[in-house]
Each structure stands twice: as structure tokens, then as C-alpha cells.
Amino acid sequence: MEKRVTFKGIWLPLLLVLPQIVITAVFFFYPAGQAIWQSLFIPDPFGLSMQWVGLGNFEYLLGDRYYRASFVTTAIFSILVTVVSMGVALYLAVLADRLIKGSGTYRTLLIWPYAVAPAVAGVLWLFMFNTRVGVVTWYLGQLGYDWNHVLNEGEAMGLVVVASAWGRISYNFLFFLAGLQAIPRSVIEAAAIDGAHFWTRFRTIVWPLLSPTTFFLLVVNIIYAFFETFGVIHTITSGGPQQATTILVYKVYADGFVGQDLGSSAAQSVILLFVVSILTVIQFKYIERRVHY
């Protein structure tokens, strides 16, 4: 797509794109290039020189038990966050869509947690489930359940999943509700006249018509779970216990900044870069398809 009417000039447009190009070059392309370059070296223990290892860092990573475990952790974590937040959001959106009046009020009441930072969400959930002072922990204790996400790997994973999914419900709700409201009433009423009950209508009409929204949210939520949940992990578990909640992004940080293993951290960045590229391509392919509809 191109504009038919354009202005003349060569220097002016170059000047106009200059700020963005400079910032992108200095703070994006240079660091990204550095990451790729550093991933091919190992620094000596004193940080004085770098030794060329080619793809050695990658070979090491892919053979590393902890790194492979982190991949599995990330997969489990992302799938759980996506399913939980989308499931709850769809349920609420279906309910809100059935109201003639008041769905706008519920929308207002449900969307504002979008504004709560993942790191703040982490602190809120940590407070509820804190092993010493947490209210939920205390009540669970009264029921005879000994909650301790500091030691129990499954509970730690459960807590970071719920804290990450919680803030995301708003976003998914908004898109699901919009998707539901875009479905023509007449189609659903026709099915109702034919005697289809709610569940049948949902399964055979609503769900298929909602699938573009669902697919879009699926990709966007996976990207969210991969990259934007760092704050939740860092505030609640710091990747523990025994690395049970060390997702890939957390490991880049932990190895690069805490462990000072720059070569490995850079190689991990490159692998992640590859993963994001695939996700982004999927997202764009899908959007392209939607445009051609």
C-alpha cells in the first residue's frame, strides 16, 4: 500500500526518520548484535579476554540439564497461565454477554487490574500466601493444609501461575466480550428457536465464531507469559525452589547478572530471540489471514 500524493524532498524525510533510526541503532541493533557476538565467546574468569568458542555455548546449553529443565518449566508455566487466564476471562465474558443491561458496569469493574504491574501483582499474591503472615496460608492451615511455596515446587509453580494469570484476565475479558458482542444475535436466536440449548449453541455457533479472537489471544498470552512475567517470578520465588520456577527470561537474568556468565546468558538471549521470532511470525501470519477475510 502506497500513498498516491507525496511531498518532494530527500533531506527532510531523512531528518525526520533520523531520531528513530539513531535510537533503534544504538539501543536495539547494537545490543542485539552484541548478544549474538558474545554468544560465540567465553570470557576468562577475570573478564580480561574472550575466547572464541563458536557454537560451544549453544552446545553446552542444549546439553545442560538445568537449561533443558528451564525450557520445560517455561512451557508448563506459559500453558497454565494462558489456559487459566483465558478460561476465567471467557467464562466471565460469556456471563456478561448474556446481560441486556449492566455488562458495561461489569466491564469497568473487571478491566482495571490490567493497570497493575506484574511485579505488584506478585507482591500482592506473595502477601496472601506468605508462609508466616499470609491470610490464605493461615486459613489453609486451619483446614489442615500446610502451605509452603518456599519449599514445595508444585505450590511455588501454582502461585506464580495464579499471580500471572490474575492480572491478565482483564485483557482477555475485554477481547472475548468484544468478540462475543460481534456475533449476530439473529444467528443465536435462530438456533434457540430450533431448540438448541445454551451449551449446544455455545459449542456449535459461538465457539467457532469466536475462534479468531481465541487464536489471537492464545499467541498474545504466550508472549506475555514468556517475557512479561519476570516481575512475578522475581518478587515471589526468585526462580526457586530448586529452580522449579526458573523460566527462560529469568535464567537470562540470573546467569547474566547474578552469575556473571555473559557468554551463556548471551547464547540464551539468542535462543529466546529465535523463539520470539517464531511467535511473532505466527502472529503476523494470522493477522494477514484475518485481513484477507
Binding site: F28, A32, Q34, Q38, F227, F230, V249, G256, S269, V276
Partner: peptide, 12 residues
């Protein structure tokens, strides 16, 4: 630049 969140290139 759409493809690479800051989380991925933090060290450099």
C-alpha cells in the same frame, strides 16, 4: 524491533 523485547537483550 517489534520482535525483540528488552528482556531478551538486557546484558548488552
Amino acid at each position: 524491533t517489534l520482535m525483540l523485547p528488552v528482556e531478551v537483550r538486557i546484558v548488552p
